[in-house]
Design a protein around this nucleic acid. Structure first.
Lengths: 156, 156
DNA sequence: AGAACTCCTACCAATTTAGTAGAATAATTG
DNA sequence: CAATTATTCTACTAAATTGGTAGGAGTTCT
């Protein structure tokens, strides 16, 4: 399960990605309101994202946050990783949060581990190929589908 | 992340699957020792698995647990589901633990949801195709690989 | 100077997880 | 039949994690 922190982080970054072209930074309070994220919590999250180099900030009046990289360059897997969410289903197959199962006699021949590894690979394949920009594109595609159901294939 | 409960459940079921042919049930204490699972905890887990129909039990002396179905018929996804582990990364894409994101204006056009859905599908595709028997097979394959590294393709 | 921001440290309440204790109940076996 | 060996079941609980909040210090713009 993704933590709320990870979810909020991605949502906030998407909000920043939407206005990537504008030169002015986005205030915390604006993002919080737009994405319905508790303000103080978002504050902490953005601070962390800044320390990790995903966003930059400008202090003082008319300050705020902006993406530090191009939306194409920020992958969902990276955001999840830094916001504390391991992607793997077990620590023994996690690259970034690795920990052995203390009960496992031989990790290399553990059948469950083998399966879980396959799941992790499938998940990472998707999450590390999908950038903020890709995610916004998906959103637009979904909106088009919903708004213009003209050229639809017969349903059922 | 898989909970320990789910992990223990799978490990216990694998232990039962290994002796599926024998007619005698396996005692909790034997499984606990073999798989290094805290005994009392395992007790609770097996009870739940019995209530869910995965295993049967026999009380009294020379009692114990046994698989209620063939190892081919018990899928990892099913075990994870009943032991409380949602497979999806967000409740809004979970089939069995569905809950809407209260902040989401329109679920149908949420880009993040769309990605996470793809991840869930990939995960479920694997977990619902892999049975206890498959998992044991993987184990044997891994053991062979480890023991007989004769016919190996040149390693880089 | 003062308003409008971010930055930072320090809390905290609720939930979940990973168990444990102990007695009741049931079947076998000598 | 009675002792023994099991599962069954109810009820706790300790520790960690999650999802926040409070409040002031520091910065920049006007």
């Amino acid at each position: 399960m993704l933590s709320k922190k990870s979810k909020y982080a991605i949502k906030a970054l998407l909000a920043l990605a939407k206005v990537y072209n504008e030169k002015t930074p986005l205030r915390i309070s604006v993002i919080a309101e737009q994405e319905k994220i508790p303000r103080k919590f978002l504050e902490a999250i953005l601070l962390e994202l800044r320390n990790q180099g995903f966003v930059g900030s400008k202090m003082g009046a008319s300050g705020g946050y902006y993406l530090a990289k191009h939306p194409e360059e920020i992958m969902l897997s990276a955001v999840i990783r830094v916001t504390g969410g391991p992607i793997a289903m077990l620590p023994c197959v996690s690259l970034n949060f690795y920990e052995p199962c203390e009960e496992c006699v031989d990790e290399a021949t553990c059948g469950l581990r083998n399966v879980v590894m396959e799941v992790r690979e499938a998940s990472i394949r998707i999450l590390s190929k999908t950038s903020l920009a890709d995610t916004l594109n998906r959103e637009q595609m979904l909106e088009k589908k919903a708004v213009k159901p003209k050229k639809r294939v017969k349903t059922k």
